[in-house]
Design a protein around this nucleic acid. Sequence first.
DNA 1: CGGGTGATTGATTGTCGTCAAGCTTGGTGG
DNA 2: CCACCAAGCTTGACGACAATCAATCACCCG
Lengths: 242, 242
Amino acid sequence: MTFNVAQKDATFKIAVPFPFMGTPVERAPENLQEHLVVLREFGGSLRFSRNETVFQEGDRAQNIYRIVSGTIRLCRHTPDGRRHIAEFALPGDLFGVFGDAEQAFTAEAVTNVTLIAYPRAQFDRHSERDPRFRANILRHLSTTLMTAQLHTFILSCQSAKERLASFILRLADRTGAMETRRLDLTMGRQDIADHLGLTIETICRAVTALKNDKLITVPSTHQLVLRNVEALCELADGSATA
Amino acid sequence: MTFNVAQKDATFKIAVPFPFMGTPVERAPENLQEHLVVLREFGGSLRFSRNETVFQEGDRAQNIYRIVSGTIRLCRHTPDGRRHIAEFALPGDLFGVFGDAEQAFTAEAVTNVTLIAYPRAQFDRHSERDPRFRANILRHLSTTLMTAQLHTFILSCQSAKERLASFILRLADRTGAMETRRLDLTMGRQDIADHLGLTIETICRAVTALKNDKLITVPSTHQLVLRNVEALCELADGSATA
DNA sequence: CGGGTGATTGATTGTCGTCAAGCTTGGTGG
DNA sequence: CCACCAAGCTTGACGACAATCAATCACCCG
């Protein structure tokens, strides 16, 4: 059983688990993550443990990384000790710059992580040859840009509670926790604070507030249960029902 | 007098004013803005007056726009009336999405503006053919992404005065006011506020504060003179000399 | 010259940051 | 198995910065 894919695409086919039957099915790669399997022979596996640095801002960008397991934070440290976390990268995500020669962020392991590193040179060469690969790079960059711009909106318009609601929903969405309603917070409170432009104390108070409002429950420090997704969404989109 | 450009690049050569002699010089297009002249025959000129809407968030993205004169704001309006300005586009800048079918932002004229609209179809076709055009698109997207990420940093870490200093410096840099030390603020205080995640009153107070600190003078509402660029930079980079 | 829009300043409130003190949790070793 | 410890989380008290509300001012345009 296969999807309808033109023959010339055969070299780009990949195997993915078929949700209902548990058997692999061939189809064309839809996004850059999937498409990267064409470079799998060049990819080297790497491991980092909690709080180790993968690369630093300003390092030469030699690889594109794909996360197999664990969580990475992409951050910047200011001269006076402030820290800003631009993004968390989760399993399946790619990170490392595409256009430039230098890394824009420092990448640190939030948990123990396993990565695959794809050499930039292979990456660039393959993208010269394959227009569909290029299209996927473009799409990936666009998506990343949209995400960053959404984040600027959150930071410029939302209150502490609203920011936390936005964060929780996005994380739930990315990890598939929308189904199970149960969300693992692999990062600590300080990490969340530095991502949302708040302090750790404010994060704690916002968590407590959402708990008191019965929007979530907090079985343990690193687990949340979503009790009222609709109300969380209202908070997050700014639907004025404060 | 020409730069050393290979013959096969001839079709992509463009004329730019040579800074010292005032005569045009031919060279290869370095960025997407310059490179767009290859599509000039398809570009239609448009005019909008102050506060008119060029397109809205969610509209089908039919064109890429290039600003000839004036200022555009790229913004979002929330259900409850808040507004976020993601970016100001200045003469020479491009705006409109590249990857997607729908506009991510509403584009409104801050001043009277003249634009050139390039049809997306032409754009995509040309990028299929010309690898250097593609490279420029990629570079352009990367730059835009970097800018957005810098903005998230400003919004999550900086105080009102620091944000204003960052804004002034970036605007000065983009408009060439670093030379003349004289900066035109084409946008109003409310626009600046919505870009920096502050209120109009806070912007006013921050302007007054910078004036009192003798970092700037304010000849008129829409003009600034930079008196101490170094101190402004220290404020903007967070060099802890508060 | 008058009206209106946008900018500025002042007074007050509220949200979040700071400082400080407990509390939980998980890991270690006796 | 429990005691201990440390890291990180939580809560409280207080203060600072920016938001809000309100009044006045400056400037542009007709």
